[in-house]
Simulated assay, not measured.
Amino acid sequence: MGEQSKRPLLLGHRGQRHTRRKIIRYFQPQTIPPDNTIAAFELTMQRGCDGFEFDVRYTHDRRGVICHDPDYRGQNVANTKYEALLEGRRVRAKRTDYPPEEQIPCLEDVMARFAERAYLDIEVKIPGFEHEIVAALRQHPPTKGFVVSSFLPAVLRRFYELDPELPLGYIFGDRKLMAEWRDLPVSVVIPNVKLASDDLVQEWHAAEKQVFVWTVNRESEMRRLGLWGVDAIISDDTELLVKVLGGSK
């Protein structure tokens, strides 16, 4: 078994994510802000994590927004202007008093607020906006470390063409797609926790790749991955993650 030489990075999944499984023990659900929001990112940092993972899509008017799904509150992100997404939130939400930090944020706001405070795992959900993301990174260079990650090999190759120095990460949750890491210009492999094993972690490390694992919500998994020496753990349950593996470095 691999030996842990240092604690892995502790990263919140979409900041602090609501989960259908009853793993959030210390907070009532209504006190947890919506995931992929400024409030969720702040909560993750307050709990002692090193940073967080978040999802980037683009609106019809080419605004980078932090959103996991193609649709947001019944509106298709790619076909909707940014201001219309905000208005749609106010119209469709059961609550009408969402503060700004719980509304859908834009990429520039997240970079400006967290680039000097948090490790950023920037997951790119769609192709075609690589120039914009590189520009955002140059405007607000992350000082605590970052990776630009994606499930999409073509997106990763395009980022490499634009800037070969960018730290890139390949995300996968299907064993059939796992071997693609060998052919991609990435420095980080990001498997689903169900695919991770001690042998694979050692293989990736031998190939000089960092290993980030998602989404890790059980204490036993956190401890096991820590012993294997993974470089980062991404979790919905950030409070448990910090309790098990220790606070921010």
Rank of each mutant, 00 (worst) to 15 (best):
T37Q: 04
P167N: 09
L225V: 05
T19R: 11
L240P: 09
E53H: 02
I233Y: 00
E108Q: 12
K81R: 13
G246L: 00
Q75V: 10
G247T: 13
K81D: 14
L241V: 04
Q4T: 11
G64H: 02
G15E: 06
F41V: 00
M178N: 10
Q28T: 13
L225S: 03
V211G: 09
V193D: 09
L85S: 07
K94G: 13
F151A: 01
E102R: 06
N36P: 01
A93D: 15
L120E: 05
L200W: 11
F54C: 04
Y82K: 01
T31W: 12
S220F: 12
A39K: 01
V91A: 14
I190N: 15
K249Y: 14
A84H: 10
V188F: 05
V213W: 06
I233W: 03
G51W: 00
R57V: 03
T37M: 04
A40W: 03
V134M: 06
T215K: 00
E221I: 03
Q46F: 05
K209T: 09
S197V: 05
K144V: 02
E161T: 11
E108H: 08
E203L: 15
Q16V: 15
L195Q: 08
A207S: 11
R92W: 08
D50Q: 04
M45P: 00
G169A: 08
D71M: 12
V213K: 03
D55Q: 01
M178C: 13
P191V: 07
V189L: 02
R117G: 02
M222T: 02
K22Y: 05
M111T: 05
G88M: 05
D55C: 01
N79S: 12
P99K: 09
D69M: 02
Q28M: 14
R63Q: 15
V155Q: 07
F114K: 04
R218T: 07
K243C: 06
R113L: 10
I233M: 06
I23T: 03
L86P: 06
A118E: 10
G12H: 01
R157C: 14
L137A: 02
Q46V: 07
R113D: 06
D97T: 10
E161L: 14
Q75E: 12
C49F: 09
Q30C: 11
A112W: 06
L10T: 03
C106E: 15
P185N: 08
V77Q: 09
T238A: 04
V134L: 15
D236N: 12
T19E: 14
A179C: 13
N192T: 04
G247P: 14
A40V: 03
R223W: 03
A135F: 06
E101D: 15
R92L: 13
C106G: 07
V148R: 10
Q139W: 01
G226E: 07
V110C: 04
G145T: 03
V201D: 03
P33D: 04
K81E: 14
S149N: 02
K81H: 13
A154K: 11
I126H: 08
A112V: 07
A112R: 13
